[in-house]
Write a protein that binds this DNA or RNA. Sequence first.
DNA 1: GTCTATACATGGATAGAC
DNA 2: GTCTATCCATGTATAGAC
Lengths: 185, 185
Amino acid sequence: MALEVFAVEGYRGTSLRKVASLCDLSLAGVMHYFDSKEDLLVQILRERDARNEISGTIEEQEGRLADILGQGHHEPGLIALYVTMAAAAADPEHPAAAYFHERNARLLKISEDSYYADKPAPSAEELQYLHAVTRMVLATADGLQQQWLVDRSIDVVGTMKLLMEQTHEATERKLETLRAAAADA
Amino acid sequence: MALEVFAVEGYRGTSLRKVASLCDLSLAGVMHYFDSKEDLLVQILRERDARNEISGTIEEQEGRLADILGQGHHEPGLIALYVTMAAAAADPEHPAAAYFHERNARLLKISEDSYYADKPAPSAEELQYLHAVTRMVLATADGLQQQWLVDRSIDVVGTMKLLMEQTHEATERKLETLRAAAADA
DNA sequence: GTCTATACATGGATAGAC
DNA sequence: GTCTATCCATGTATAGAC
């Protein structure tokens, strides 16, 4: 699909009629494939995620995340679309709501699975802590991109690396504490 | 101004005509006070910031930030508005662009000033590091609120405290290293 | 099934009267 | 300063050709 073409180049107040003409189609020709404009926009995000699949070990994932964030600098339109849809997803009825719920659950699971691939199963307390940390890292990635839209001089990748560095230290320390406490009991 | 009333209660696809009727005005009556709808929305954000002024020591500021984030849970419409405008500010011509630039500069300065209120002046390297950390913390706050819009069960305040805790440790360690290196030279 | 053409409702913006 | 009236763009829905 050439859906992304227009969105990559620039998502502003792009109307469906402009999209249609860029695809050498008429308005209804476009609407035949989508339930609504919002649905179209969300599907663009879905396709981007499909391209940016994440896998591998935690270290590989974090490197991949940094790559994706850096690559995003070439498609500000998609970043703006992502942020806009996140706001729209405040309404549970909006198609973006389902998208973000699925996405968050998927990312959380990927992170969890890879972290415990070569480790013994975690305690419930450990798992809860790791979920919180993962959500924090993902939130920072989102927030940095949001700020980058406003100020393109912000170093998204560098700041993420700063966060990951300090998070690794803190997490290792915390998990050791938790395990020691569990061993005592 | 009773501008916020409608925005606090719920910013969705609220039309200016609805806003006007809530103010017992006509559409043109509202437009008399604002350059455009976007201008109105940005001014709502400005007024919110005026209410949520931040001051005091770093510790007080962080407590205040947590309070504000917690309080934000009662006005999801304003959070959604903030996120939406951040995306719109990707266009430098949009009125939100100036707003966010001013806001970021102000927050950065407030943080810097209070941190060095009772300390010797920092080196350029130190300052750069602290700016990066501050931006990271602010980005996480933004990102958490963005995610909270989608999933209201997310613990924004708790996650922020988690971040601040580990950031304090890492920052102290980093600054000591920088100062030791400076003392060597 | 896939597309074109058209009609309709709504929203933002503007002009001009009082 | 506020109103009425109007204009234009846009999202959405429908009818119908191929």
